[in-house]
Amino acid sequence: MERRQRKRRSPLWAKIMVVFGAILMVAGGGAFVAGKVAQDKVNEAVGQDDLLGEGARSEHEVDLHGPLNYLLVGSDQRVNSTKPGLADTIIVLHIPEGMDRAFLVSIPRDTWLEIDCNGNVYYSKINASYTCGGTDRGASFKSLSEAVHGLTGLTFDGGAIVDFEGFANVVGVIGTVELCLEKTITSIHTGKTFEKGCARYGKDDALDIVRQRYQYADGDYARQRMQQQFIKNLLREAIAQGYVTDVTKVGDLLAAVGQSLTVDTNGIDPVDLAYALRGISPESMTMVRVPSDVGTVGDQSVINLIEPDAQGLWDAIAADEMDAWAPANPEYINTGKAPK
């Protein structure tokens, strides 16, 4: 599909999706594109690839009036690494018709399902499907997208992946981000202790915090809440520091993402897509937990879907009925606080 040409007059205000760190995280980080030269810089800075598997890609032409579904993945793989990575964060981003709000649905990385890994079919955790591509990020994403499609039945209008360096570097540009911890934790990666309550953290500590899960009673669900909180707060900070209005700052943001971010916009110019998403704010984002609970397979802990609740969620996304589904299912809406 050929990319659509932009014919708007400059200056143009575009929203750049900041697929952030330790979750993906993705959020509209706002920015600014003035004219053709700036547009080219955006398109050159953000890596583009054919990420979605054949079954996972939407067959219809992308409509920038919505609804839209995107698959967002955060990987622990470092740039130019010779080792395969894992998908630490898997998010289905649903944007309803109207393009002024968003639902971020976190799929637990330990979700148990059947995986087709290059013709070898077996049961495993969903994040293992990412390793089927080896060190090729595009191939890894394709494999994961097919696994997500098999689990949910959903197809996607595009996708994005950010790896380890991107997780930290976006925060590095912003400076610090506020995170509110449910409890005092000690990192299993660095041994550093982080106190319960709200504080501002730099890029290394923020990345460390959002990667933790073993210290919480509900494990990966707590990490999902922290990752989703991170997305909102990072976007708020970007707005507060003028990344929505100051065209001179976009270069710093793009340089921070660099090789770490790869997108598949399904033939749509990334700047056009960003502009179409300009109405989404932190307050218009709803964070969703997939209906699921913890189980075991042998000696390993896994996540199993709760049916028919999970199927109801997938159906609501496919039919663009999340505005009705969310208030009818409050137990699956993440508020940023631990469930009682």
Rank of each mutant, 00 (worst) to 15 (best):
Gln5Gly: 10
Ser10Gln: 14
Ala14Lys: 06
Val18Leu: 15
Phe32Ala: 14
Ala34Leu: 10
Ala34Gln: 12
Gly35Glu: 03
Ala38Lys: 10
Asp40Val: 12
Ala56Val: 04
Ala56Phe: 03
His60Tyr: 09
His60Arg: 15
Val73Phe: 05
Arg78Gly: 10
Leu86Arg: 15
Asp88Glu: 05
Thr89Ala: 15
Thr89Ser: 15
Ile90Glu: 05
Val92Pro: 11
Gly98Arg: 13
Asp100Thr: 04
Leu104Tyr: 00
Ser106Trp: 02
Asp110Leu: 10
Trp112Ser: 05
Val121Ser: 01
Tyr123Met: 13
Ile126Leu: 07
Ser143Cys: 07
Glu146Met: 05
Gly158Ala: 06
Gly159Cys: 06
Glu165Met: 09
Ala168Asp: 02
Asn169Ala: 12
Val170Phe: 03
Gly172Pro: 04
Gly175Lys: 04
Thr176His: 12
Glu178Asp: 14
Glu178Gln: 13
Leu181His: 05
Glu182Met: 15
Lys183Val: 00
Ile185Cys: 01
Ser187Val: 01
Arg200Ile: 07
Tyr201Lys: 02
Lys203Cys: 05
Asp205His: 05
Ala206Gln: 01
Ala206Glu: 01
Asp208Ser: 01
Val210Gln: 00
Arg213Asn: 03
Gly219Asn: 06
Tyr221Ile: 15
Ala222Cys: 12
Arg225Lys: 04
Gln229Cys: 05
Lys232Pro: 02
Thr245Phe: 09
Thr248Ser: 13
Leu253Val: 01
Leu261Ala: 11
Thr262Ser: 12
Val271Asn: 01
Leu273Arg: 02
Ala274Lys: 02
Tyr275Leu: 09
Gly279Ser: 14
Ile280Pro: 03
Met287Ile: 07
Val288Ala: 07
Ser292Ile: 07
Asn304Tyr: 14
Leu305Gln: 06
Gly312Tyr: 10
Ile317Met: 08
Ala318Phe: 00
Ala319Gly: 09
Ala319Cys: 06
Met322Lys: 04
Asp323His: 02
Glu331Pro: 03
Glu331Tyr: 00
Tyr332Glu: 09
Gly336Leu: 08
Pro339Val: 13
